[in-house]
Write a protein that binds this DNA or RNA. Sequence first.
DNA 1: TAATAAGCGAGACGGTACGTCGGGTCTTTGG
DNA 2: CCAAAGACCCGACGTACCGTCTCGCTTATTA
Lengths: 189, 189, 189, 189
Amino acid sequence: MPDLTRRNEQSRRAILDAALGLLGDTGYAKVTIEAIAARAGVGKQTIYRWWPGKGAVILDALVENATAVTLPDSGDLEADLRLVVRATVAEFADPRLSATTRALTAETLADDELAGQVRDRLLRPQLDAVRDRLRAARGAGQIRAGADLDQAVELIFGPIFHRWLLRTGPLTDGYADGLVDHVLAAIRP
Amino acid sequence: MPDLTRRNEQSRRAILDAALGLLGDTGYAKVTIEAIAARAGVGKQTIYRWWPGKGAVILDALVENATAVTLPDSGDLEADLRLVVRATVAEFADPRLSATTRALTAETLADDELAGQVRDRLLRPQLDAVRDRLRAARGAGQIRAGADLDQAVELIFGPIFHRWLLRTGPLTDGYADGLVDHVLAAIRP
Amino acid sequence: MPDLTRRNEQSRRAILDAALGLLGDTGYAKVTIEAIAARAGVGKQTIYRWWPGKGAVILDALVENATAVTLPDSGDLEADLRLVVRATVAEFADPRLSATTRALTAETLADDELAGQVRDRLLRPQLDAVRDRLRAARGAGQIRAGADLDQAVELIFGPIFHRWLLRTGPLTDGYADGLVDHVLAAIRP
Amino acid sequence: MPDLTRRNEQSRRAILDAALGLLGDTGYAKVTIEAIAARAGVGKQTIYRWWPGKGAVILDALVENATAVTLPDSGDLEADLRLVVRATVAEFADPRLSATTRALTAETLADDELAGQVRDRLLRPQLDAVRDRLRAARGAGQIRAGADLDQAVELIFGPIFHRWLLRTGPLTDGYADGLVDHVLAAIRP
DNA sequence: TAATAAGCGAGACGGTACGTCGGGTCTTTGG
DNA sequence: CCAAAGACCCGACGTACCGTCTCGCTTATTA
């Protein structure tokens, strides 16, 4: 196994940048290990040495660029939720960002190990942030005492994901607000 | 464009059966056009003549085998919903059925045209059946008058999809029931 | 076996014309049974019903269009030979005519039966005409009494074929005349 | 363009050997790039990387195995020529060797570039050796001073080729000797 | 003058090979 | 000993033709 201390940081960055660049420029189908290597000016082996496959590279690239998610706690649960949900919906609606998610989801479907990594390293922070905000709201009595917070979180993000994958409707602020309304109705005391 | 009347029904069936068989026996990665053709005892061209790609073949195979979905209307909305949701959750939990869904979802991510077909021909009937049941319930005053039924439907299926894709929790009857509770809470008067 | 009396003359002509047309227009590589059928506005089966393969079609087309060869007998053997040899050389030098010969030769290399047909139906008349002229010359004492006329004929056409296939030199009147000189030197008394 | 220094010599040899082996064992029609690759235990790409097509592979194989041709100069031109011509005729008569020549000739007919290569790399040495011997003979006054040596060479090999392609007669020692007689008669002083 | 048989255009069919692409591994050469 | 470069074996891609096989339709005998 390779010695992490000898890893070339320049190559690492070039590979991650190339992966994201290709995703944005040419679409998911054209993103191959060979293309990443070529765009990064790197040998294929240098990719295989440090990552198990294309999906892992993309995941690393996204995790690297992901900004820490922190939900505001203004005291007004509805307003706070509206903020995250609108942001999330906008992200899925953006073709650029959507492309990377699409790519990663595709890899995920054929690779259980990767699926776990994506869940834990990329999505969990986001989901946990929302759950923590809900927990605070529950403490404040704005939510039913017995409400299952994990399920509440999925009640928010599941429909977005569903609508994005199936294109069953628009991904707009209006949609986001409606979703928040429904979810709140489900968990309020 | 090929003349539909001259199509060989035997080959058509053999191809769809081969596609499903391979998905069940060897897993998604091994399902290639070449393998389907070989297993069906058919020339590759016969597949390309009638389908644009692997995804379309799988879709046709699933649509062909799909049983018409009809929701019971026992008058008890909660009981009726519990039934569908439990069934859906069980389907996603079953490794065999899950494999085909996984395969189709992967193709979907790289092919917008196919995505639309999957939505309209495979999922819509299921989603519409649920929506119709909800409409009846709304007529009976069991649901808020102003409730958005489409969003309600997504509120049900979205979380299941999400949990299935991300493996964030078990897909059990208990989960199904909890989900129904939440959704009902969101849309009841 | 097909009934010759019911053969459609129009189709037969269309096929032969299409074969020659394709050879002239698109080059040998593009001449396929499918292309011939398409250009002739004919079903593939109509070709396979009457000919064993592409080579046989081309052969028939050439035989049909071939003009009867008759060598003049002016009494002057050298002049008479010069005439045929110049004509033959010119034929091989012409890109259009050369293309069909090339195609036929290629088929010949993979099909012994066809090779015999080409020899007997297409070339023999030409070769025999020259041999007959030589026989007359031998009678007139212009050629050695014991000369092998068949070999003499090959001595004329062999080098032309060789030079044409291998492109070892130009195919001009000058070349033709030089060849005649050499051959005559070989067989004169 | 590929880097010649990195070429795998083992693969190269295996490919050439496989090509010749297939030609000998199964006949020309079965010699495909796929078959060569399979028999050589090599990826198809490795063939396409280094050769433009089947013909070029066969040519290389033949050139590699060709023994340097050197004509003896015993002082007796007739005896020396008889030797080469008999050997050449025997080569064309041998079904094994004939098969490769047939294959190469067929490729040649559809590929001008290859035709030039065959001429220059495979046949020229043979032809030049004979021409050199003739030149020596001319120096010794055994041949007409003004004789065109190139044409003389074609006068020898052309008829052999012609007879081989058209199967107009047997390829025996007797034929070879008769041919030498005629050619010598044509160029003697 | 029907009926019946063949040829016909069309093109789907099971195949084989094509030439290309990308996967993941291995090797060479140079910091 | 990492990294670039890229050759290697492999497997699948989508395409082109092969030669065979139905399909209806037309066209000529034969009853």
